[in-house]
């Protein structure tokens, strides 16, 4: 079964065709990172305008690279939430236009389900799995059952991990998007240089909090500034990153123990973080579970993850019709129940 997936929930306009949720036929992407860099963050109206300008061209490019005609597809999938409403609406409108023109069935996909599904592409991995989704907008631990249905075990109470990275990057004067730069600088610093807090580790749940960590970094930088010390940027990055990773890895390992699931999918933009990948792999080795992360190109937002998730959703009977709408806020429960 061949599915075209379209993703426009934030600042990437992306499309891809995936076969049976596993085999990537082709993908295309128009990134807006440079467009938003000058604003220091994603500007929703600017993002929506850009999506409208490029969405059909990106889709056609994916189709052409796959060497496919519309009648050789089996369904059209699109991210219907969560995300920036105006941005989501462009993808949903285009996808509905394609479905209307071609008569192909339509599948609305939850963005987080997409991130998790990305880890299945090119593998023989089968659910059930545990998923740690870490991105600019999300930090969640999810249980994924045999039918690719999600149960949220925990998540962040305030900032997403990726958001904390970007905010710390900004405190350090690194240009947006700063998350990957923090990761790179952290590789050269001492992770034990500063004792930043590990929030919520003493709590018996799978929740996170990262806003206190960001504040601690701010206090440290202020202290340096007042005392005239030069800030060892690499050390700040390394210590900050270690604090994030420690909490993510520890809570994930606890979820593995609590659920008995032996495979952890690491997904989302921050899944590309080298430090996190290494630390989780080391813990998996010690505790005897398996970690599966998508290739780097499929960690950030893309169309393939939407097409892959759509395949699993389709397999358990999920369909949308032309009344499909976009939702800035959308829970996995509402999505699975077809309330889109």
């Amino acid at each position: 079964m061949r599915i075209l997936g379209i993703e426009t929930s934030c600042d990437e306009t992306a499309a891809a065709i995936v076969e049976d949720g596993r085999r990537l036929c082709a993908q295309a992407l128009a990134s807006q990172v440079e467009v938003h860099a000058r604003f220091g963050g994603v500007v929703p109206e600017v993002a929506s305008r850009r999506h409208t300008e490029v969405v059909t061209r990106v889709t056609e490019q994916a189709m052409r690279e796959a060497g496919l005609e519309w009648h050789q597809l089996d369904a059209i999938a699109v991210t219907c939430g969560p995300g920036l409403l105006g941005a989501l609406l462009v993808g949903v409108s285009a996808a509905k236009g394609y479905a209307l023109a071609t008569g192909l069935p339509l599948i609305g996909v939850h963005h987080i389900a997409g991130h998790v599904a990305a880890a299945f592409i090119g593998t023989d991995l089968r659910p059930p799995v545990l998923a740690l989704v870490v991105s600019g907008g999300h930090t969640e631990i999810l249980r994924v059952d045999e039918q690719f249905r999600f149960e949220r075990l925990g998540g962040t109470k305030d900032d997403a991990a990726g958001e904390a990275y970007d905010k710390v990057a900004r405190l350090l004067g690194l240009r947006y998007p700063g998350g990957p730069k923090v990761d790179a600088l952290a590789q050269r610093g001492r992770p034990d240089a500063f004792a930043f807090p590990r929030s919520m580790l003493d709590e018996d749940n799978f929740d996170f909090s990262f806003s206190g960590l960001k504040t601690a970094v701010w206090h440290e930088l202020e202290r340096c500034r007042r005392s005239g010390e030069t800030v060892a940027v690499e050390d700040v990055c390394a210590s900050f990153q270690q604090a994030v990773i420690d909490v993510l890895v520890e809570k994930t390992a606890r979820a593995v123990a609590a659920t008995g699931l032996r495979t952890v999918v690491l997904a989302g933009g921050v899944a590309a973080n080298q430090g996190l990948r290494r630390a989780l792999a080391a813990r998996a080795e010690a505790d005897g579970f398996r970690v599966q992360a998508p290739p780097l190109a499929l960690c950030t937002d893309n169309g393939a993850m939407i097409a892959a998730a759509a395949y699993f959703a389709w397999s358990r009977g999920q369909r949308a019709d032309l009344t499909l709408n976009a939702h800035a806020v959308l829970s996995l429960e509402d999505w699975q129940a077809g309330r889109v």
Partner: peptide, 19 residues
Amino acid sequence: SYTGVRLAVSTAKAMATAL
């Protein structure tokens, strides 16, 4: 309406290019 106008434009472009 900014958001509004994009709905028909995106839909029409998708239909026109697909057909």
